[in-house]
């Protein structure tokens, strides 16, 4: 009997500690909990690394913000922001009009073209005709899903929680092609699996309305102070060379885009 009560007491205590533990108020910067190399992925010691993680940390440092990287499921990342579980989204989220109805964005911090990857020698073309009747994998609720649904009406769209899973199914041959950010796809094509099976079939036709002006930090509406700080931070690291220093190990071109 006593053991049961003390177990219950322990559980209560643990939860109160858990509920109250996160109250020190650092800025919670969210990355998607699903790996998205080379932007953000966990390593074997459980730390989050990648270009976007480095960049977010640099912006925080430039503006003397106390930031903590918090992984959140991509599926619920906007609700998590609006319900105050996180403060900033740094998850390669493209700035789109649809999203701007719900949340606010900082200035863009990178912008890259959109490409399609398919099996080697497939001969597919990244056009509506070329994709007709094919199975295209995309990450769910991304600009790529919107683009594929709008421009490739005759293709079968399969949605994944992460780009990683779409890549995996392309390797397994379950989908014919996948559309994503060119950089993410390049990283995949450099991996052992990717280089063995697949190749890029080129970039898709631009559509600013769907693809947006680039990637920015997402934040709650009305937090204009924070927004100003993040913009100033992005500007500062662009100017003092930190941005280039961070990008160099990852990319051999200017990821900031035009």
């Amino acid at each position: 009997m006593k053991t049961l009560i003390s177990t219950l007491g322990l559980a209560v205590g643990m939860t109160i500690a858990a509920l109250g533990g996160a109250n020190a108020d650092p800025l919670r910067v969210a990355v998607a909990a699903e790996p998205y190399p080379p932007f953000a992925s966990p390593d074997a010691s459980g730390n989050w690394t990648g270009w976007e993680v480095d960049l977010a940390k640099a912006v925080c440092k430039a503006e003397k913000l106390d930031c903590v990287i918090t992984p959140v499921a991509w599926d619920g990342i906007i609700p998590a922001l609006t319900s105050n579980k996180i403060d900033v989204i740094a998850a390669s989220m493209s700035i789109t009009p649809e999203r701007e109805k719900t949340i606010d964005f900082s200035d863009k911090y990178y912008n890259t073209p959109t490409a399609i990857v398919a099996a080697k020698g497939s001969g597919y073309k990244p056009t509506p005709e070329g994709m007709s009747g094919k199975i295209i994998g995309v990450q769910v609720s991304t600009i790529h899903e919107d683009y594929v649904r709008k421009h490739f009406p005759d293709a079968e769209v399969r949605t994944y929680q992460t780009q990683d899973e779409a890549n995996q199914d392309l390797v397994a041959g379950r989908i014919d092609a996948t559309q994503a950010d060119k950089i993410a796809l390049d990283a995949f094509l450099e991996s052992a699996d990717g280089s063995a099976c697949c190749e890029s079939i080129g970039e898709v036709a631009p559509d600013v309305e769907v693809l947006g002006p680039g990637v920015g930090f997402g934040l709650r509406k009305g937090e204009d102070d924070l927004k100003a700080k993040l913009n100033a931070g992005i500007k500062a690291i662009r100017e003092d060379g930190t941005y280039e220093a961070i990008s160099k190990p990852y990319f051999n071109f200017d990821i900031y885009g035009g």
Partner: peptide
């Protein structure tokens, strides 16, 4: 990736926020 009932509503959530 099977689009049963839950998946459809997940898509609604993700499209509309």
């Amino acid at each position: 990736t099977i689009s049963e009932l839950y998946a459809v509503f997940a898509r609604v959530r993700q499209d509309t926020y």
